[in-house]
Design a protein around this nucleic acid. Structure first.
Lengths: 155, 155
DNA sequence: AAAGATTGACCACTCAATCTTA
DNA sequence: TAAGATTGAGTGGTCAATCTTT
């Protein structure tokens, strides 16, 4: 029992899987984030919001829908939209159908930015993950991820 | 070409792998973080620092070494240690061998907290990841993660 | 009471600048 | 000059409280 971790109820196989996954995840996310920021000036959060809006009809989504798309909490979205509004990437209007709601719209600037960023993002994902795995490993990763995600549905 | 993502240079297989991985990672990290915070009052950052210190001889590490263990930037560590010092989890002293350096020590309180948190953390990892995968999937995840990590060494 | 959204306080992280010692 | 570390400003994220409308 040398380390704290070894006293935990994870056996060697489990510990290996968790430790390597966790390390990989941190390093990968950091690399992609730094490259995205450097090449496009967008944070991960900016990117997700703009992509969801750009994919929506007319570049418009109710905050409610947008929140569902990106799976965020209300307050996170609200703060983020406030900052992006200030930078001219999106606008916020009142919702006609439901006076409680608000509607988010991507601006022309926002659209320009996301179109460019999308390619950079894909390049980063390819460079830091996809090109480093075999086709079999890539499929295995997808299977594992889908398994975990599916298990989250019922809980 | 319906969505922005489809215009990116990722084919269907690649897109499936990235999308599922990314979704899974976000959801998994959120669940583990929320459970850790709820049950122990520690953030992920607190946990990493305390674990590294608890594993070190006498619960002491030079900031330089600690930073290497957790793979953080200087400023992130400095801010984090400042906050943890305020909460009585660690102390900070000047380094004898190198006057530029500082030495971080886990407190008795810090040690109590991390011992308990370690079990909770392992339970969360088991509950949200390990128990949801087969032994084969777990090994495959370890292989994939180690492949990516190893490829990062040379770059 | 519940749903949609916002706000404010606080913690976390990054980046660039700075300070000190090697 | 470079290495070890800190600081301050600014952005990002969470939680709890609040406000309005349904």
């Amino acid at each position: 029992m040398a380390t704290i971790a070894e006293q935990a109820p994870l056996d060697a196989r489990e510990e290996r899987a968790w430790h390597s996954y966790h390390q990989m995840e941190q390093e990968l996310a950091g690399r992609i984030r730094r490259r995205l920021t450097r090449d496009t000036g967008l944070s991960d959060a900016d990117y997700e919001i703009l992509r969801a809006l750009a994919d929506a009809p007319d570049g418009i989504l109710r905050a409610r829908e947008l929140r569902f798309e990106v799976r965020w909490e209300k307050s996170r979205l609200s703060h983020q939209i406030g900052r992006m509004e200030g930078r001219g990437l999106v606008t916020r209007e009142d919702c006609d159908e439901d006076s409680r709601g608000s509607v988010i719209r991507i601006t022309a600037t926002g659209r320009e930015v996301i179109v460019a960023a999308c390619c950079e993002y894909a390049k980063a994902v390819r460079a830091y993950l996809i090109d480093r795995l075999s086709a079999e490993q890539l499929d295995a990763l997808a299977d594992i991820s889908e398994t975990v995600l599916a298990s989250f549905e019922s809980d």
